[in-house]
Write a protein that binds this DNA or RNA. Structure first.
Lengths: 192, 192
DNA sequence: GTAGTGTTTGGATTATAGTCCTAAATTATC
DNA sequence: GATAATTTAGGACTATAATCCAAACACTAC
């Protein structure tokens, strides 16, 4: 069973998670989080002494969620190609959010990568988790040598498409982009 | 001739330009700009009443610089392929800065795209200027119909490569990425 | 039911950011 | 060289942010 305290903490993390995504980390204030989570002002400091700690908790939460998702895909999807295409699928499914706020993982890394190296190295873990999983799929598909490079290339394609789709508010570009990625993946699979 | 006042204003714009790139717009304070430009605190408000105005001046400055650069390329580089490859070249040439602070144009748009729509629409102009120029090159190359889509694709590729190269601090990925783009451009040119 | 630990409050405090003001100094104009 | 306009200069003011605090409340164990 979850205690009331645990639920409060989770509400704070959820609120921070959303706000960090929608407004960015640096533009999100404690007041924002407190309002969104509906906890009294002072109470938040009982759970997180600093904003950095809050970010770390948010990243940890995202990592756990992602881990569960990927494990689920490993279990329920049979071929590496289908698994990779499932990855591309969430991009397409998230179109509205991506057009509004960009990639949650990419934009966080871009923001923190500028001059907050400690925070950035936390955020990088999100990329690492996907990258390693993607590489595993490419390896299983028959590209053990090129697995890392292919995974980076897939990530780069996704990031680029999302940035441009957001800049131009163009869902069509996102759709064509994901379709093109799928064609690429299918060709890789065919000629493995 | 440039007056002292004009030079001061330019120093402020240059300082803001650098800081917005290195730290991001929202994390840059007036104090930062004042220190970097070495103008007295109050004086900056004689030139820019608000931070938004300062950003607009910075963007205007970047647009002018870019315009000159592209006009120069138009004049001095003969074929569309060479011009497109010149564009890719600046990416490669900027490796250290890109690894440190990401793409000046992309990261600004990612930052402002989250929840500062007015400022984002200013920043978007930077993309527009490149996009239109790139499309012109593709059209001249023999792809008048696909020119816009190809230009967006080129921009997306660049953005993606830069994001991933920065996240992984991997100059090699940037180098391989730009080489791959050049191959793609050369194939487009060959079979136009 | 009382002691003790964990949790909740709201306001107080401090730091930093953005903005404004006014007087001095400089430059331009007659 | 006197007068007006521009620019400089530093500090004052206001808003917002992060952080802390101490008293109240609530639950658990004995």
């Amino acid at each position: 069973m979850t205690t009331k305290s645990e639920r409060t903490q989770q509400r704070i993390i959820d609120a921070a998670n959303q706000l960090f995504y929608r407004k960015g980390y640096n533009r999100t204030s404690f007041t924002d989080v407190v309002d969104e989570a509906e906890v009294p002002r002072g109470n938040i400091y009982y759970y997180f002494k600093t904003k950095e700690e809050m970010l770390q908790a948010v990243i940890k939460h995202r990592l756990e969620t992602t881990k569960v998702m990927l494990a689920d895909w490993d279990k329920s999807i049979k071929t590496p190609l289908d698994r990779l295409e499932r990855f591309v699928q969430i991009m397409y499914d998230s179109t509205p959010a991506l057009l509004r706020s960009g990639c949650p993982m990419g934009s966080l890394n871009v923001e923190l990568g500028k001059d907050q190296p400690e925070l950035k190295s936390d955020a990088k873990q999100l990329f690492d988790m996907f990258q390693l999983w993607l590489a595993k799929q490419f390896a299983q598909m028959g590209y053990p040598e090129e697995a890392r490079e292919l995974s980076l290339e897939l990530l780069a394609r996704g990031q680029g498409i999302i940035v441009i789709a957001q800049v131009y508010q163009d869902p069509g570009f996102l759709e064509r982009g994901t379709k093109e990625i799928n064609r690429w993946l299918e060709n890789l699979d065919r000629y493995a």
